[in-house]
Design a protein around this nucleic acid. Structure first.
Length: 264
DNA sequence: CATCTTGTTACGTT
DNA sequence: AAACGTAACAAGAT
């Protein structure tokens, strides 16, 4: 589920725990979500550490702790963060559980596509520092986007939008929302977009990213009426502009929904 | 039972 | 060498 704004929503859920010590750790250490962790004893490192702050970039989250510890989280397809009572007992999919005096922090992920990383050092880990600029930052410019589209000029634009190295945080529904607003057919090759169409696409990316952050991150509400988002799941979706039945097909292995009238 | 899934990555091919 | 297509990962929903 989690794309840009949903990741931000889950990150904020643990805000209540900042400044507080982790008193105990429970983990399903053999699960795939821990595949990036090399050190044994990592649960001992976390136990006793204080959770200082957190940040989300794209679909990744980084938590800074005392003792020069950093906790990286990716929610994959089905991951989520929750806050439970102090006496919480982990269930089947609750793979990382951090106990504090007043609450319990839970990372759960049924499909195990998520990823948990631990890093120890003065500064944030390299995988974090080398992330591409956020879609809402000054560094995400039309020129940068143009270069990325050119590098992937033989790839359908739908697939290019899903590349996290160019469009961090964009997932399947955001990509469809962006293309519908930019009136670009999802199969269009990335290199075939004229400069003016690229500019429209860039603006749609900013609008969708900003709107998603505004409407979804505070409380996981759906975007307002008129968003493509509200029509693209299940069959029977209608274009918010024309009421025309939406087209649906698999593009680069991902289900894609579009309006054949808006996006010729 | 078959098919689907809001994500990434390994691997073989172009 | 870089980019591309596809299968694989895993488990639940329909």
């Amino acid at each position: 589920m989690p794309e840009l704004a949903e990741v931000e929503y889950y990150r904020r859920r643990w805000d209540c725990a900042l400044g507080q010590r982790i008193s105990a750790v429970a983990a399903h250490a053999e699960k795939r979500v821990f595949r990036s962790i090399s050190t044994r004893r990592w649960t001992e490192l976390l136990r006793g550490s204080i959770l200082h702050s957190s940040e989300a970039r794209g679909k990744l989250m980084l938590f800074r702790l005392s003792n020069k510890l950093w906790l990286g989280l990716h929610l994959g397809m089905t991951g989520e963060l929750r806050v439970e009572r102090p006496d919480f007992k982990p269930a089947k999919h609750d793979h990382l559980v951090l106990y504090q005096n007043a609450r319990t922090l839970v990372f759960s992920d049924p499909r195990l596509f998520g990823r948990i990383r631990i890093h120890q050092g003065e500064v944030a880990p390299a995988w974090w520092s080398s992330l591409p600029p956020s879609l809402l930052s000054k560094e995400f410019t039309p020129a940068r986007m143009a270069g990325f589209l050119h590098r992937h000029r033989r790839l359908p634009i739908k697939a290019t939008l899903l590349l996290q190295s160019g469009f961090p945080g964009v997932g399947n529904w955001m990509a469809d929302e962006i293309l519908w607003r930019a009136r670009v057919h999802p199969r269009t090759l990335s290199g075939a977009l004229e400069e003016d169409r690229q500019r429209i696409l860039w603006r749609a990316i900013r609008l969708v990213a900003r709107g998603a952050m505004k409407h979804i991150s505070p409380d996981f509400s759906d975007p307002p009426r008129g968003w493509f988002f509200n029509e693209r799941w299940g069959n029977g979706g209608k274009c918010p502009v024309h009421g025309v039945a939406l087209a649906r097909d698999s593009i680069s292995g991902r289900t894609t929904v579009w309006c054949s009238r808006c996006q010729p």
